[in-house]
Design a protein around this nucleic acid. Structure first.
Lengths: 130, 130
DNA sequence: GTTGACGTTTACGTTAACGTAAACTTTAAT
DNA sequence: ATTAAAGTTTACGTTAACGTAAACGTCAAC
């Protein structure tokens, strides 16, 4: 467990903090989403690893696949060389933006729908008090 | 195909309109999300069926499972009898609202991240013009 | 020195959401 | 009549994202 110096985490610390299993974290590593260091055989996670994990889980809440989350995370680091690649990156970023905007609209509509459902249900409840 | 009187649709009409396969539509029926009528052996979809399909796909874009989408769709119809059930329904509706609000926050953060990514990428591009 | 908590690898199992294909029927058009 | 297009059922296949279990190592504590 080691004293949490706040610049390294064990796998179970992260698992507990985010409410997931260690299996899940190792799975993400298998898929290349995390690449922790090793102290001997044991995985050691940096704050950057933790941030990546956070981003993965955020993507998950939005219904993204691990591949999509990986793509988004990689977008933040334009270490990709030539001009053409950078332009394609800009396009992919824009595409994701469009997708998120669509999701925003979908959420708005669904929230309105829920308001409607609440109203109807409360109406049904008032019926019962008669 | 039949003349589209706008009050009934064939399975392939719906498939084409929403960019999915007929297999998918039949699968949703298998899962109890759609219950079209039959003209002989052939499925005939009403505008209400079409709306349900639309809601399913909206849920899908938000990362919902079919079970979740079914739940949300069913929320709109409080045909459920007693007071206790109605109160539980109100709770479930509220829970969904919370979830959608969380998604809104996630989207905001991710959009900010994308803006950041765009800025960085454009900066990297300007580097190339030197 | 053994127990228990935590870590590791390897591997098979499971569920959701369809894809794909076969084998057949019905309807529309040539 | 014979295609061609669209429909049907049945059933096996596939992928993603883990769950579950076995079998083992390590190390601090009693």
């Amino acid at each position: 467990m080691s004293t949490n110096t706040a610049d390294s985490y064990s796998i179970s610390e992260l698992a507990q903090e985010f409410g997931i299993t260690t299996r899940t974290i190792r799975f993400y590593e298998d898929k290349g989403l995390l690449t922790p260091q090793r102290r001997g055989q044991t995985r050691v996670y940096t704050p950057e690893d933790r941030v990546r994990l956070k981003l993965i889980l955020r993507g998950k809440r939005l219904g993204f696949s691990l591949d999509e989350s990986r793509e988004i995370i990689d977008m933040y680091d334009p270490a990709h060389g030539n001009v053409e690649q950078l332009n394609r990156l800009l396009d992919r970023i824009d595409a994701k933006r469009q997708q998120l905007r669509q999701q925003q609209r979908d959420i708005e509509k669904m929230l309105a729908q829920l308001d409607d459902a609440t109203a109807r249900t409360e109406a049904a409840l008032k019926e019962h008090s008669n």
